[in-house]
Nucleic acid binder design. Structure first.
Lengths: 340, 340
DNA sequence: CAGTGATTTGCTCGCGCGTGCAAGAGTTTT
DNA sequence: AAAACTCTTGCACGCGCGAGCAAATCACTG
């Protein structure tokens, strides 16, 4: 059996059409499509039958306009060189969709300011805007908040000092301390910290935590360098230039990277450009546990954020059932591999 | 100076409010925000002034409902293990946004069928749905077309036999022939083709083209193997199992991969698991020119699709100004590196 | 300054559905 | 069997804006 009334599909079929066919009112039709609506089993079946015949589905645009809830969230991202973003996108879209939210993806790498993008999102009445990029300064966040009708501004996988935003992230301090302890336990004593953009407070968190921890333990502050983007290529170049003309393995015995994207570049530089071995000559650690970190070529010792739990946290924030104390204290897991 | 009337921002400000303040009608207000509307310079300035004071921006939701144009396109993706997707997402979102379209990202890796996702997209009245995943069979496309109100169904970076879809892709046949010629010219004579999911007609195109070309030249048909997803890890495992217990370099001198995602895994397998060198023992070619292909560790000889031109083509399709003959014949560029 | 055409402005009606209430139907209690 | 419920259904009104037309205004010309 094929769908009946196939010819009708060109014109938009509204709840009124279904109502006429099912012999009920339009409101009963729309009730039939609401999960917890007050409607009898009998008329729901009548409606659903008619709806299927006509190929009716509720119009979410009209629904959003009328109810002032769009069931869309806007994801702002500016950091497409970092493979971890693909993982985050996969996880977030899946969890959001499973819970009834659609995802609006906005590329903010072009925008000088995120506020334009946020303004645009607000024009669509998104229920929330989620920042998962890296270049958002707290200042730009502040101005961005000028764009209202964005009910919730959420910073994902990063801490934010801005009191008007909700931050969902793992406990970076605990995580970095765990990495530091691991490194110390392994006997490394001449670390180099490779950081990302200095505008990001996340990296401030990780870098500061590591440097502080090290200082507390050995009373010396390790060297650190940074790159402008979380981009393996930039990390590669930076490592090369940092060690140019020096005997790297005598200066440094481990490179602690702010995340795996940087670690990839660092490892490539160590092996290909400098001709050294990881971890024998110089060890490397990362953060995020991206898929490549587990590949045969890299095998990076890293820290896995509990992305699914964090995505679940985001859903709870959207539902308004979140426990705000827990949102910034997700606990991940150190993944020990061969790179350190 | 900070924004005046800050206190007003909590309530939604509509065109009516602006109209009252500017001393014009509501329709004049909305005209002021339309690029090519018939409105005098003077009243536009009046309106814009009032709008800025009140913090007004047009509501795209209401606009979409009234005009039946949402200015949204839906991107369907199921292939998050392929790093190339991140590049595509970056490019597409940027071009779309620059031309006035917002992007709805739908993760279809969970869905048994894409039609559910398409149905959902249609409920949002997207102007077009763009398939950039890999698992869409032409059969599923056919059933997916049952979900109407999706004005345009576009298959991006892949050919499609379905006449109801618009396919935007580079000329795979020309590209693969170029790769084949390159390989032949380099003197390789024992190729192995590593393909992706057999449901994808794109891979059919590339694989078939290569095998046919080879047969035409040497009257022998090379061996080929395949994996279920464009995932480096799967490619790694497949290559390992394929050569298990055999002296690989005697069987094969080049592995032609359907894309870079597979090439990454293949190279890792050759070097790490089999202890061989690329390209001296076994060469490798890819397709897509993902960022990692250019990294010091891989240096993959590959084929770069003209993504920006293709994204521009998508925009033209949306605008209705596309030259349909050209949509499937974008020409890319062979990028010669050290892997073959 | 009336007359003509070009431009600008206002307006009616509708996009498809949600909210909240009141009327109707169905069920239980005494 | 009437009263007292509960559940279900229908409805007026509104969400914010757009298409298309009619009225109003403007810019010239002779």
């Amino acid at each position: 059996m094929r769908e009946p009334d196939v010819d009708k599909r060109d014109e938009t079929v509204t709840a009124d059409d279904v109502a006429k066919r099912a012999g009920v009112s339009r409101w009963t039709v729309n009730r039939a499509f609401k999960k917890d609506a007050s409607i009898s089993q009998k008329s729901r079946e009548k409606v659903m039958g008619a709806a299927k015949q006509l190929g009716y589905v509720p119009d979410l645009l009209a629904s959003s306009l009328a109810s002032d809830r769009s069931n869309m969230v806007c994801l702002l991202i500016d950091d497409f060189a970092n493979p971890h973003k693909l993982v985050m996108l996969e996880r977030l879209t899946r969890f959001l969709r499973k819970n009834g939210w659609d995802t609006l993806l906005v590329n903010t790498s072009d925008e000088e300011d995120t506020s334009a993008a946020l303004l645009n999102a607000s024009q669509r009445r998104v229920d929330a805007a989620v920042l998962i990029g890296s270049q958002f300064t707290d200042r730009s966040l502040a101005t961005a908040l000028g764009a209202r009708r964005v009910r919730k501004l959420i910073v994902f996988a990063r801490t934010s000092e801005n009191p008007n935003t909700i931050s969902i992230c793992c406990d970076d301090r605990a995580a970095m301390n765990e990495i530091a302890n691991y490194i110390i336990g392994k006997g490394y004593r001449r670390p180099l910290f490779l950081a990302g953009p200095q505008t990001s407070s996340a990296h401030l968190g990780r870098k500061e935590t590591f440097l502080t921890k090290w200082h507390d333990t050995f009373s010396t502050t390790p060297e650190f360098i940074s790159v402008a983007r979380y981009d393996p290529q930039l990390a590669y170049d930076r490592i090369v230039s940092h060690f140019a003309g020096r005997t790297a393995q005598e200066i440094t015995d481990v490179i602690v990277c702010e995340n795996d994207a940087l670690a990839l570049g660092a490892m490539d530089a160590i092996r290909t450009e400098m001709g050294l071995r990881v971890p024998q000559d110089i060890a490397v650690t990362g953060f995020d546990d991206i898929p490549q970190a587990d590949s045969a070529n890299y095998r990076i010792t890293t820290y896995r954020q509990p992305l699914s739990a964090m995505a679940e946290g985001l859903v709870q924030v959207l539902k308004g059932t979140a426990d705000s104390d827990q949102l910034c204290h997700f606990i991940g897991k150190l993944v020990e591999r061969e790179s350190a």
